[in-house]
């Protein structure tokens, strides 16, 4: 029924050149398992859309991969090595609501934050950093807004600011959490062409997406997620009515029941 990746069998061997390779990862909040036994190998240079219903664990997938939420089990590798050692190759675009847009910083300040890790301690933001920040802002069409406070931007412009902060890192793997949520048509077009551009330069991008209508148009790979991987592969093969039914219909009660009990026990809140 579902299509699996050509994933090596047992053990923890990861495909060495996969930009993002997740093995047997389980994540739970309180007693509810949010992600269950995830196995993934993202193909290099692909543009992957992560699709699933609310509460399917889409954001958690990215956050767990980035060590932002604790994993119960499993491991994550980025280009064949643990994420800790590969941070400079990964750019993360969080959800727009995750920060306070009333914060007193300028657009350019936010973009430059993407390069802080190249600066090291004690060194203030210098001209080189600011120039690269401006370049990234030009890419997303916000160069005129560089010195505005972020509260003065529209929702779409805020999203583009976040994108610029990711672009400036010149990373090989981009993880984006709902970049299309609540943006205007112009921003949506900008984001799509940016994604295409990243792909044409051989970069890999994983995008959490909520719109089924546009998914097959935007992405060449699709990951259908509902607590576990329902299907993953090239969009043409995976984006089928049956798989979508399995993702959104919910046919997993037995596994849900068992995994919930298990996650509960693991945290000491079970029966």
């Amino acid at each position: 029924m579902s299509i699996r990746t050509s994933q090596p069998s047992l053990g923890s061997e990861h495909s060495p050149d996969s930009p993002l390779s997740i093995h047997a990862m389980t994540v739970a909040y309180e007693r509810r398992p949010v992600l269950w036994d995830i196995d993934l190998d993202i193909t290099p240079g692909s543009l992957v859309g992560v699709i699933g219903p609310n509460g399917a664990g889409k954001s958690t997938l990215i956050k767990a991969a980035l060590d932002l939420v604790p994993k119960l089990s499993g491991e994550v590798q980025v280009f064949g090595r643990p994420y800790r050692e590969q941070r400079q190759h990964v750019a993360y675009v969080p959800q727009r609501e995750s920060v306070d847009w009333d914060f007193p910083v300028t657009v350019l300040d936010v973009v430059c934050m993407g390069l802080y890790h190249t600066l090291g301690l004690f060194r203030p933001v210098n001209r080189r950093i600011r120039d690269r920040g401006m370049q990234a802002l030009t890419q997303v069409g916000l160069s005129d807004f560089a010195n505005r406070q972020i509260a003065q931007l529209s929702g779409g412009q805020q999203q583009r600011t976040f994108l610029a902060r990711a672009l400036v890192q010149d990373a090989a793997l981009h993880l984006m959490d709902e970049p299309f949520a609540g943006v205007d048509a112009a921003t949506e077009q900008t984001i799509v062409s940016l994604l295409r551009d990243l792909q044409s330069r051989g970069r890999t991008t994983v995008v959490i997406h909520h719109d089924l209508q546009t998914a097959s148009e935007y992405f060449d790979h699709v990951l259908l997620l509902n607590t576990r991987v329902v299907a993953f592969g090239p969009t043409k093969e995976v984006f089928t009515p049956e798989n979508l039914e399995a993702t959104y219909g919910g046919k997993l009660t037995l596994l849900d029941q068992a995994s919930q009990a298990l996650a509960g026990h693991a945290q000491g809140v079970g029966r």
Binding site: L66, P94, V99, F103, M113, H117, L119, R165
Partner: peptide, 22 residues
């Protein structure tokens, strides 16, 4: 003053900072 940019970053977007290994 010395840790200005780091402190500003963790105030603005702690998740992003952590993702960068801060």
């Amino acid at each position: 003053v010395v840790f200005f940019k780091e402190l500003r970053l963790i105030c603005f977007d702690p998740d992003f900072a952590r993702g960068h290994g801060m």
